[in-house]
Simulated scan of single mutants.
Amino acid sequence: MSKPVAGRKVGEREALAVATTVRGSPQKLNLVAGLIRGKKAGEAVNALTFSSKAMAVDVRKCLQSAIANAENNHNLDIDRLWVKEASVGKSITMKRFATRARGRSTRIVKPFAKLRIVVQERDINEEAGA
């Protein structure tokens, strides 16, 4: 027997995109994710396009993936999408070493982070209230 099909991880009228290995610390990624939380999808893409942070490129790719998922998989109107959630978590950490003076070595930690973006379609009357 096979396993039953898993249900949707987000509600109706919502779409999800996940970036599992974004190179950089979760703390720095959270600063960039804070730029788009609660904004309309188009405004969020513009904010990330013109951001000076290097991680904004990866966040923009994930956001555009969520918008594409909403349009193609869930038939949502992209003009009424807004960023409901942009959560960040820790992923793997690569450990390397660098040689130092007098035969010693130092550990170098190269962190990765996870990013989860949920976009939701709002009604016209909800947008007027927001």
Rank of each mutant, 00 (worst) to 15 (best):
residue 34 G to R: 05
residue 36 I to M: 03
residue 51 S to G: 03
residue 54 A to C: 05
residue 48 L to N: 02
residue 75 N to G: 15
residue 54 A to P: 01
residue 60 R to V: 07
residue 88 V to H: 09
residue 101 A to P: 06
residue 80 R to F: 03
residue 80 R to Y: 01
residue 5 V to C: 09
residue 37 R to T: 13
residue 8 R to A: 11
residue 98 A to F: 06
residue 80 R to C: 03
residue 28 K to M: 05
residue 121 E to W: 13
residue 68 A to Q: 01
residue 63 L to R: 04
residue 112 F to I: 01
residue 38 G to C: 09
residue 10 V to W: 12
residue 22 V to T: 14
residue 109 V to W: 02
residue 1 M to C: 04
residue 27 Q to F: 08
residue 9 K to R: 09
residue 74 H to D: 11
residue 2 S to G: 15
residue 8 R to P: 13
residue 112 F to R: 13
residue 74 H to V: 08
residue 19 A to G: 15
residue 95 K to T: 14
residue 75 N to L: 09
residue 94 M to R: 09
residue 27 Q to H: 02
residue 94 M to H: 11
residue 97 F to L: 14
residue 88 V to A: 00
residue 20 T to C: 06
residue 46 N to S: 13
residue 115 L to G: 06
residue 120 Q to N: 09
residue 52 S to N: 11
residue 130 A to L: 14
residue 30 N to L: 10
residue 58 D to M: 07
residue 46 N to A: 15
residue 52 S to I: 13
residue 121 E to S: 13
residue 13 R to P: 04
residue 7 G to P: 09
residue 63 L to C: 13
residue 106 T to K: 14
residue 13 R to W: 05
residue 65 S to I: 01
residue 31 L to V: 06
residue 33 A to T: 09
residue 58 D to K: 02
residue 58 D to I: 01
residue 24 G to P: 09
residue 61 K to R: 15
residue 29 L to V: 00
residue 12 E to I: 12
residue 31 L to R: 00
residue 7 G to Q: 10
residue 35 L to Q: 13
residue 87 S to V: 05
residue 41 A to G: 06
residue 81 L to G: 12
residue 33 A to I: 11
residue 127 E to R: 14
residue 8 R to F: 11
residue 45 V to C: 12
residue 28 K to H: 09
residue 74 H to G: 09
residue 15 A to W: 07
residue 99 T to W: 05
